[in-house]
Write a protein that binds this DNA or RNA. Structure first.
Lengths: 330, 330
DNA sequence: CTGAAAGCGCTTACAG
DNA sequence: CTGAAAGCGCTTACAG
């Protein structure tokens, strides 16, 4: 910028004015400055600008896995809101590793993002306290913060799961299995609670062998499903705790002779084209992201007050697999 | 930092040393500094650091749509490589809009990202010339740069498409349709060229009504497919130019009485569970991302030389839909 | 082992 | 309409 000023024969401030499109520069001066800019290949350095101005016009997004189709629409929605507010998105995946989440969050804070949208992997977010005290706006999505108070936007996992299981019960099932994610994950725990509540409300006993929580890789989920189907008190219906579980369950059930009812948490593309088409409890990932980002920018615009928790509804979409009656095992 | 130094009764440089874990500080001094840091809630400001050091340890990723499942594994792969090199990822979607691509790229440059990975939407990248001259490393992925020379990592769209269409021809088809993305998009043009080449190599004529290029939204693609199927010289097989086209094609074909063969470009989840299971030409999105990011960091580490273009192979996966023989229309 | 000075590239507040 | 000076929060190069 100094070189540009020298070449154009003007002061630093005048170059700054031209670069930022501020008023108060004669057309002639402006032309000279612009010439110098292209001649010298000048490019403004935003780091310096940020250092002076305070705000960085960027927000951080920490999610679990960029490659998980559930987070695609969510990220995209956060990005659109950020863009509408003139902010850039900096993001990264925690890979469900609390240490990596913390590392990423603190790196974003050191870059002085104006705010953070976090899909947490950790179970203790007190490391964020100094940042929150320093004024970094933060909204948690999909799962709440642990051990600190913070804004959060969640899906109604409990209600959705209760409805899913009640749906299976209404179609005559009494032995219903549940395969979910690791119980330390808030959404997994809530979905389990919904399952238990629906069973209890119908006065149905739950055999411990009908419940399996853990990593959602195909091997574990497949083994869990097969053992529930082939055990002594075999299930006639399965409630799958998320999209990955559902996909694996579909594969397992496709190889079976006796029909087994299935309801999955999370909708997914082509669910309606499988046979049977898959009944799901859908949550709106894009709306989750949009709501969280809007809450963040409201905070950045000065909205004060206690941390808020917003819960978005889910929707049961009956397509066929959830309406299969219990198989008669003769 | 000044306040921390004052409170700990040391010089600025000593605080800097403690914060950065540099050697040459007595344990006692270090303890005093750390106490002052927590007492004052000090958090290092990386903008200032970046301003001094030059490198930002961050790279930018510009893609077409964060929500498109094809880009999930690609982004994730870029992120993993960045992480291995201690760099953060800043990213955004161009939404297939050249103006938005340019805006995003220049914003990233102003933040002084060390390098860029770009899935281009534009057809003229000369706006990047000043940045390239200033030393911003740049690698294009999935599609090449236009009107400038730059590193690029691509899939072999031409070869994959030729193989797909040859596969249909080998199963007896002579009237084969192609539905692809807008012809300005390099990958779409290459896939069309592969289609034409395979048809020509088999000595088969191509009726203009068998080719439809344009936006890949379900309405347009569905209409195009129906008109090819119901027109005067109806096709007996369809080659779908990308994952979105394939999904729509599956929906259209599912409602038909006469079987129609289908091969899709891009693999997708559950393709094997549909009936018939969908034959595809698979490209490796994660490898595309990884290769590009590695090339970028090699440049950042000083690799000189002419821009390189790497082409990754595709793989035909026969699952059923592509092996259906031509329907006998009596 | 420790610190004072200069400077990274901008903007802010002020004066002409 | 224009510019000189000070400062954002750090690091670099040097000296003690």
């Amino acid at each position: 910028m100094k070189d540009v000023a020298a070449r154009a024969g003007v002061g630093l401030k005048t170059v700054s004015r031209v670069v930022n499109g501020e008023p108060g520069v004669t057309p002639d001066t402006e032309r000279r400055v612009r010439e110098a800019i292209t001649a010298l290949g000048f490019r403004r350095n935003d780091s310096a600008r940020i250092l002076r101005k305070g705000r960085t016009a960027s927000i951080g997004l920490v999610l679990e896995d960029l490659a998980d189709p559930f987070y695609g629409p969510l990220s995209r929605a956060v990005e659109e809101v950020a863009r509408a507010h003139g902010a850039l998105l900096i993001n990264g995946s925690s890979a469900e590793d609390p240490a990596r989440e913390q590392e990423l969050v603190l790196a974003l804070c050191a870059r002085r993002v104006d705010g953070l949208v976090i899909i947490p992997a950790g179970e203790d977010h007190r490391y964020l306290e100094p940042e929150l005290a320093a004024g970094v706006a933060t909204v948690f999505v999909d799962r709440p913060a642990a051990r600190i108070e913070a804004d959060a936007v969640l899906s109604d996992c409990f209600g959705g799961s209760r409805a899913a299981v009640a749906h299976l019960i209404a179609h005559g099932h009494r032995r219903i299995g549940f395969i979910g994610d690791r119980p330390g994950i808030h959404t997994a725990a809530e979905r389990l609670r919904g399952y238990r509540t629906a069973m209890a409300e119908a006065g149905l006993p739950v055999d411990p062998s009908w419940i399996s929580l853990g990593p959602t890789d195909p091997d574990r989920v497949g083994a869990a499903a097969r053992s529930m189907l082939d055990g002594p008190g075999p299930i006639t219906a399965l409630f799958a705790g998320n999209n990955r579980v559902t996909v694996t369950a579909v594969r397992v059930l496709a190889g079976r002779t006796l029909p087994v009812a299935l309801v999955g948490f999370d909708d997914f593309e082509l669910a309606d084209l499988l046979s049977p088409a898959v009944t799901v409890v859908a949550q709106d990932a894009a709306r989750l992201g949009r709501t969280a980002a809007e809450m963040l920018f409201r905070r950045l615009d000065g909205a004060a007050g206690e941390p808020r928790r917003v819960e978005l509804p889910t929707r049961l979409i009956a397509r066929g697999s959830g309406e299969i009656p219990p198989a008669d095992r003769g």
